[in-house]
Every structure is written in structure tokens, then in C-alpha cells.
Amino acid sequence: MTRLRFNQAIVSAIHDEMTSDSSVILLGEDVAEAGGVFKTSEGLLERFGPERVRDTPISEMGFIGAAVGAAATGLRPVAEIMFVEFLGVALDQLVTEAAKFRYLSRGQVTVPLVVRASCGAGLGFGAQHSQVLDSWFRSTPGLKVCIPSNPQAAYGLLRSAIRDDDPVVFLETRSLYGDRGEVALGDDGLIHLGVARLERQGSDVTIVSAGQLVKVAIAVADGEHGWSADVIDLQTLTPWDHRTVMESVGRTRRLVILEEGPFSGGWGQEIAYEVAADMFGELRAPVLRITCPDAPVPFATGMERRFLPSSEYVTDQITELIDTARRPLPWWQETGNHV
């Protein structure tokens, strides 16, 4: 085990895959000389040279398209998007080209591409640099979507994503880059795509989360408030791990989904539906989704803190759910909070 920051775990994953497979390359804005603006590629240029570690112009459509073409013809590119919003200008290449090549070629042309992008709220980057935007990718058959919550997951999932033969969107929550943790490197540290992790075991409720809110789920799970929770870190949003979720909810018979992102269109809707449809009558309470409001991410400190679900808020919501067996209203629908 090695103690690493989240961003160092990213570097290690890319490093290890580039070492074991000469077809892996890294490209993106400021990934080479500067080592990445979030230090997620430090030292890779020096180790692997400018042929395989490439700075690009500010030109997402161009270099994501080039990564798609390179992936279709023999390389395994890792393309870095500095802020996930910048994928908006390259969406065609990911959603309409990369995600379709395997299908349109009857499996003959594959796109083993990883698009890494920093994402998420909480650091005061404002409305155009703080979204997660996973819904853009989840609704596209042909794409896989990962969002690690800790350094081990960052390492293990990224290595698997690079080895995967399909295009993977790898969302890195910016507020986690500085988090430290013990990381198993090498094959022991690999985490398969599509496999969730049961982080905590409890008895009264299952909390399914992903990304930075897994920390909130863990913080509230321990029984201090009269109930204890299973905490599932989904890790891969597409395809998501049905079995782990169903097994847990089968035991606890209550499901809370804790998501970063707007209420509308979130990944939790699909899980809520599957659980409600398969376990109707067995549940002790309605499925509860705890999300951000349907609003862009605000800048002011207090507002952004309110935007993301806090430990206190999540505790109150779950306590009310367990006490009343009814869905508590989200804060923005409670009396006095209307704008």
C-alpha cells in the first residue's frame, strides 16, 4: 500500500498503463509540459516523451476527434478535458462518433478511449465550471461512465477504463484531488467497471451514492442518530451494479439515493425505478432521492454550501424518512425556501 493523493493516484494509473501497453497515449490541454493543471499527469512527459504525452491547442473538438480516430486505428488514448463543461464543444465526437463506431461497424471498429474530465461543485468555480453532467453521457448507449470517490477507486477504475475496449467517460471530482488515502497499486488495485463497493454495513437503510457525496454518506451511516446504513459507492454509473444494490435493499428494505447534480435527470431515477419496480411491497418506505436543486451551481460560499447536500441535511432527511415512512420534501420545497 502506498499513501497517495487522489490526483497522484490518477498519475500512477496512467503511468502503469503506459508502462505495460505502448499503445496508451495521453493528450489534452497542458497535460505535458505543465503536468496537468490539477497535477494529474506530473512526470509523465519526462517518463514517456512527447510522442506519447501531448499538449494540445485549446481545441476540444479537434483533439477529442483525433483521440477517437486514434482509438479506432490502434491506440488507446487517454484524453483529458480540463473542466467537464468543455466537452460540450466536443460532444459530437464522443456521443455521435465514438459511441457509434462499434455498432455501425458490427464490432469491427472499436474505440478504446478514455475521456477524463474534472467535475463537480464546492470549490467556488461558478456555474460554468462546477457541473458533473453525467446525464449527457449516461443516456448514450455505447458509452461507459465512471466517477471514483477516493484515491484507490481513482487508481483502480482508471486502469480498468484504459484497458476497456469501449469509450469510457471518467469523471474526476475536483474537490477530491487533494484527498489522501492508502492505495494498493498493481493488479491488486484494479477495480472492475460496473462493480459497486459496499463501503459500510448497517441495518436500516441503504444509501447509494457516487463521487464526492460518498464521503457524506459514510459520515452519516454509523447509527449515531438511531439508525445505521449500508453505504454503496456505485463507482461506475453506466453500467451500474444492479446486484449489489438489490442485495443491500433486500436486507434493509429502505433506499436513499444521494446524488450530486440537479434533481431532474439524475442517475438515481433509474435506480429508484428498478428498485421500486422489483421490490414493490417489500419496501418499508418510499425511495428517497437526495440531490441538488434544479438550478445552476451558484458562486457565493453559503449558497454553494447549501447547493450540495450536507451531512446534517442528509441525516435529517433520512431520519424523517425512517420515522414517518413518508418522503420528506427537499429543502427547496419546504415553506419559506421558495424563491
Partner: peptide, 25 residues
């Protein structure tokens, strides 16, 4: 022949990527 492109211009960067692949390999 890669799958032909129904989005105007989309094949241009992809061709660049195929050339990048040839160059790197």
C-alpha cells in the same frame, strides 16, 4: 473505410487521429 460520417465535418479530426495513430506506432 471507417464508418461514414453523417455529421458534417466530423470525419476531419478522426482522420487526424488515424494519422496520429500511424505516427505514434
Amino acid at each position: 473505410l471507417l464508418p461514414t460520417f453523417a455529421i458534417v465535418g466530423a470525419g476531419i479530426p478522426v482522420a487526424v487521429g488515424a494519422a496520429l495513430s500511424a505516427s505514434v506506432r
